[in-house]
Amino acid sequence: MNMVDITAAQAAYRDELVDAGLLIPTGVDGLYGRSGVFEDVVERFDALVTRWGGRDGAEVMRFPPALNRQYFEESEYLKSFPHLAGTIHSFGGDEKAHRTLLRRLEEGQDWTEDQVATDVVMTPAACYPVYPTIARRGPLPGEGKLIDVFSYCFRHEPSIDPARMQLFRMREYIRIGTPDQVVEFRELWLERGRAMMGSLEVPLDVDVANDPFFGRAGAMLSSSQREQKLKFELLIPITSSEKPTACLSFNYHQDHFGHLWDIHSADGDVAHTACVGFGMERVALALFRHHGFDTALWPGSVRKVLWG
């Protein structure tokens, strides 16, 4: 399948989803409303994640889909992904500037000149607010920490691929502790992820992956990430079997966030971190692709897993 075919397949699936009423278009690629049926599947999958991971004693944290800009700046996200970041700006001018703004708006000119950056930045991944929060509490307890987050995330990558939304939800478990604790967590979820998604009867594969780092420095980071097998993805074909879609990811950050935020284990060493992320919309899209748009007609075994 070449790029033209892949793009056509993505556009076709998006149109099918819109025609079926599962996604509600807004006129912006990658920005959709969701129907009740779509949300039901997301909620049932969210509950399934809790069934698999909820007994591990994670501390639940729910943040709005935005970050303290200072945390965002300290995270070095702009070093690696400047092209994906979404900063929130607001009008900062006086009455004269307001009149200018309205005039430009009316004349169809650029009206954004007097917009200034606020203290708020869109959350790029659900785990970002967690690290500075944990760092503020001081050294970790001996057993480390396990955190459960769920948030809308923003990435500026408009696409006609319904599986590449600009605003989408990510559930995550985040492990913070010694290298042994963190690696054990990731191994556990690599196994669980396969088993959990297998129970939904979708074709899947797990493979080494890399993040979409920016520029030549990014090429270096991507190749290093792959060589060290720091990121794995659980892939499910949605619009292409040759280029299946990452629906879960298993990430070992080594001591990157520990260093950035000065998080220390009980023994005083810099903490290591890892996370498992569940792409809620992508999983829903994969289920609709493989089991059809009418959830009442899904295989009984899959319905039982999700709805009981």
Binding site: E76, K79, R216, A217, A219, M220, L221, S224, Q225, Q228, Q254, H256
Partner: peptide
């Protein structure tokens, strides 16, 4: 040497020796 340290090293070497590392 970390992955991010390696990026700094790569850029520093390019400046020091006036070269560009191919991909």
């Amino acid at each position: 040497l970390t992955s991010h340290g390696c990026v700094g090293l790569m850029l520093g070497l390019e400046e020091e020796f006036d070269v560009e590392f191919p991909e």
